[in-house]
C-alpha cells in the first residue's frame, strides 16, 4: 500500500521547501504593506512579479546573453579541466610542477584580472567567457584528479595480473572510478560558471544589445528601479538552481545504478 500523497518522500522534498517559500513571501508582503516600506528600498513580492511581467522580454534577452556566456565557459572549463586532470595523473612530476599554478588560477580573484583580460581579448563575449572559465575551471581539475586517483588498489592489481594495457586500465577502471568525483566537480563548477559570467559582466559593463543580466542590475541600481533589480536577481538565482538540478540529474542518470551517493 502506498502512503498518502503528502507523506511520500519525493513529494515532501518538493512541497516542504515550497510551502516555506510561499510563507516567507507572504510575511514579506504583509510586512512591506503594514509598515508602508517604500518600493525604492524593499519592493513587495507583487511589485517584483509585476516588473518581471512588464520587463520580461528585456530581462529574458539579458538572461539569454548571460546564459550563453555561462554555458560556453562551463563547456570550456569541463574540456580544459578534464584534459588537465588526465595530464596531471600521467606522472607525479607533471602534477607537482603544474598544480601550484592551477591553485594560483583559483585564488586570484577574477574581478582583479578581468580588466586585463578585457583589454587583451578583443571580442567582448570571448573576454567574458575567459573570465568565467577561469572561475569554473579549478573544481573540475581537482575533482577529476581526485577521482582518477581514487581507484580501488585491489582492482588495479586485478588489472595488472590480467595484463591490462594502460589504455584498458584508463577506460575500464580509472574513468568509471572517477565519475562520482567528476560529477561533484560539475555541480560546483556549473554554479561557478554562472557567478563568473555575472562578475565578468559587472567588470566589463558591456551595454547595448550584448548586455547581460549583470548590466541590467547595474542599470536598475543607477535608476533606483529596485523592483527590476530584484527581478533580475530572481532570474539569476533561478538559473543557478536549474543549473545545479541539471547537473544533479545528470549525475543520477549515470551513477544511480551503482554509486551510494545517488541511491534512493
Amino acid at each position: 500500500m502506498k502512503p498518502p500523497l503528502l507523506h511520500r518522500p519525493a513529494v515532501v522534498k518538493i512541497v516542504a521547501p515550497l510551502l516555506l517559500g510561499v510563507f516567507l513571501l507572504l510575511v514579506w508582503q504583509v510586512l512591506c504593506t503594514a509598515w508602508k516600506v517604500p518600493t525604492y528600498l524593499v519592493p513587495k513580492p507583487t511589485d517584483i512579479l509585476a516588473t518581471l511581467w512588464t520587463d520580461g522580454p528585456g530581462l529574458l534577452r539579458a538572461l539569454g546573453v548571460t546564459l550563453k556566456i555561462t554555458f560556453l565557459a562551463f563547456f570550456v572549463a569541463v574540456v580544459l579541466g578534464v584534459a588537465a586532470a588526465f595530464l596531471f595523473v600521467q606522472s607525479k612530476l607533471i602534477e607537482t610542477s603544474l598544480f601550484p599554478y592551477a591553485i594560483l588560477l583559483q585564488v586570484t580573484p577574477v574581478v582583479a584580472i578581468a580588466p586585463l583580460i578585457i583589454i587583451w581579448v578583443k571580442n567582448p563575449t570571448a573576454a567574458l567567457v575567459v573570465c568565467a572559465t577561469l572561475v569554473a575551471l579549478f573544481p573540475i581539475i581537482s575533482n577529476t584528479v581526485l577521482g582518477l586517483r581514487s581507484v580501488n588498489p585491489g582492482l588495479l592489481n586485478l588489472f595488472r595480473i590480467n595484463g591490462a594495457s594502460r589504455w584498458q586500465t584508463l577506460t575500464r577502471l580509472r574513468i568509471p572510478s572517477a565519475l562520482p568525483c567528476f560529477f561533484g566537480g560539475l555541480r560546483i563548477s556549473s554554479g561557478l560558471a554562472l557567478i563568473g559570467a555575472v562578475v565578468a559582466e559587472f567588470v566589463a559593463g558591456t551595454g547595448g544589445t550584448g548586455a547581460g543580466l549583470a548590466y541590467e542590475i547595474l542599470q536598475a541600481g543607477f535608476q533606483i528601479n529596485i523592483p527590476r533589480l530584484f527581478a533580475a536577481l530572481l532570474l539569476i538565482s533561478i538559473t543557478g538552481v536549474l543549473l545545479f538540478s541539471l547537473m544533479a540529474w545528470l549525475a543520477k542518470l549515470s551513477l544511480a545504478h551503482w554509486h551510494e551517493s545517488e541511491m534512493a
Binding site: N152, G154, L158, W258
Partner: peptide, 12 residues
C-alpha cells in the same frame, strides 16, 4: 587471483 575482498567493479 582472489583477494581478501571480493574486489568487484561496483558499476558493472
Amino acid at each position: 587471483m582472489v583477494f581478501q575482498e571480493a574486489t568487484l567493479m561496483p558499476w558493472a
